[in-house]
Design a binder for these strands. Structure first.
Lengths: 97, 97
DNA sequence: CAATACTTGCCAATAATTGTCAAGACAATA
DNA sequence: TATTGTCTTGACAATTATTGGCAAGTATTG
């Protein structure tokens, strides 16, 4: 029920003494949404990652990677064949699609 | 617009001279659905994979792996950070979650 | 040319996701 | 303990997505 990207965002936000409200206004959503995003209770839209990186002065690529890893994890969690499937996909993308 | 699992299912089905209709009845869906599944136009439910393996006398784990790889691919396709994210997830699951 | 197999586009029903709101919990401070 | 400010929670209606099935279409087979 937590997410890597959510944890990271909360970490960045609190370290910079930003309030939920402040992030919320820049992202143009209710504070409750940000609260839930940080705690992995609501998904974060991909377009929002770039904005968040901006607000939080973080590396866009790093956040994108965390976000993507979360998406992948949601797919494989609890799947017995996760390992094999991951390998197969890695191979596939290495060969230019 | 095609899928690994779909291709495999069609391959298995035709090799055994089974009609869409026959597979459809066992899966209790319209033939059009199977047609679309095989061509990657409609998603296949995970529970259906086991049934399909049964009908097609195929290895359940192999089909599950193909199915899962397709799911993963849908998430990463077109994503610049795909590679890194995949690595990160592989690592994560190797450490017992 | 039948007859049979498969494909396609569309629809209504259902399910999932969305943002918002109001009330609640919690912490610090007076 | 009251007050204030921050964050959390749950419920809700509205929108959006997904579903399966039908009917008409296009191949394919004999």
């Amino acid at each position: 029920m937590t997410s890597q990207i959510g944890d990271k965002i909360r970490e960045l936000r609190t370290k910079q003494n930003l309030l939920l409200r402040q992030v919320a206004s820049k992202l143009e959503v209710d504070t409750s949404i940000i609260s839930k995003m940080e705690r992995g209770e609501r998904p974060i839209k991909q377009e929002q990652i770039a904005i968040l990186a901006d607000i939080l002065k973080a590396d866009k690529e790093e956040l994108q990677t965390l976000w993507l890893a979360d998406q992948l994890y949601n797919v494989i969690e609890g799947q017995p064949m996760a390992d094999e499937a991951l390998k197969s996909v890695s191979k596939k993308i290495k060969k230019g699609k």
